[in-house]
């Protein structure tokens, strides 16, 4: 199997420490507006907004059991082209569930809107202005926003997502080691960027191949820049238990990169692999294990 070698900048940790310190100066200004039409007898739904990197106002959906808390927080981080779904089904299971729409997604796209395709290569040669800098921070600030809720237990914060959601599970767990309790990452994207683009012609990584068609002399600059954003470089900083699940024939996020990010984790971890599965990452079988993993670590009865 192909070895995935990722360039790790010497100042990787400093870059992200500095990024988080900069955004800490931006007041969060969280707002939670109750949405009657999307709420049910047992779940209350809120339209959420907060400020993030460069002052961009980020949106999300918060769904919480009407039963008295405290509830564990479950952060649901989205895939590349999908919009966050109101997480009512997770709230019914007992979580204070927050589905965030990082910058560029529909309700968070003012003034930043790189488009799809587009986000993956937006300023990709410059780590300081790369679109994913604010995007990763938006997921961190989502945790900050949900922790302003009095019904949320700050000692129980889980992360879950697949594909780009898998990537954000990894980056957020690494950036908030003192806050995150556990994470379940399916088919993690944004791991081994350059090797992935060599291994597949599926989107989103195909955006890098297209970019390099336009700018064939940028390959080294791109490789160095994305080193600051690679999940494999974040993985050693994770302290919370992690569950990773992958399809062994994933054409979107090559399985080689899923093995590599799991290998790079130093935390308590488990890897589930599924034969003949693609970007579904064995979802049909894995979800039962994901739910048990989250429930076990976050103290929710199944």
């Amino acid at each position: 199997m192909t070895q995935v070698n990722v360039y790790r900048p010497d100042d990787f940790d400093d870059f992200w420490d500095s990024t988080l310190k900069q955004v800490a100066k931006v007041p969060l200004r969280p707002s939670f507006e109750y949405v009657e039409e999307r709420s049910t007898d047992d779940v209350a739904v809120y339209d959420v907004h907060y400020d993030s990197w460069a002052g961009v106002r980020i949106s999300g959906w918060y769904a919480v059991p009407r039963a008295a808390g405290p509830h564990p927080a479950l952060m649901l981080v989205p895939g590349y082209i999908s919009e966050p779904v109101i997480p009512r089904s997770w709230a019914k299971k007992g979580y204070a569930a927050f589905a965030v729409a990082p910058r560029g997604k529909l309700r968070s796209n003012q003034p930043y809107n790189p488009g799809y395709p587009g986000l993956l290569v937006d300023n990709i040669v410059d780590p300081n202005t790369y679109g994913y800098r604010g995007f990763y921070v938006d997921a961190v600030r989502a945790v900050d926003a949900v922790l302003t809720r009095p019904e949320v237990d700050p000692a129980r914060v889980g992360l879950h997502g697949s594909s780009q959601g898998g990537a954000l599970t990894i980056t957020t767990a690494a950036l908030m080691p003192d806050v995150v309790t556990c994470g379940a990452a399916g088919a993690p994207y944004l791991c081994g960027f350059m090797e992935s683009a060599r291994l597949t012609h599926s989107y989103p990584y195909e955006e890098i191949n297209e970019y390099l068609r336009d700018h064939p002399d940028h390959e080294q600059r791109v490789a160095q820049s994305v080193g600051y954003y690679d999940g494999i470089n974040f993985a050693p900083n994770i302290e919370a238990p992690m569950l990773v699940y992958i399809g062994l024939e994933d054409d979107v996020c090559p399985p080689e990169t899923g093995f590599a990010v799991h290998d790079a984790m130093k935390c308590e971890k488990e890897l589930l692999t599924y034969e003949r599965c693609g970007h579904d990452a064995g979802n049909h079988w894995a979800m039962e294990k994901v739910e048990a993993f989250l429930a076990g670590h976050l103290g929710v009865a199944q």
Binding site: D251, E275, C277
Partner: peptide, 9 residues
Amino acid sequence: PTHHGQADN
């Protein structure tokens, strides 16, 4: 569907 996503694809 077999739920083996790549096989189904």
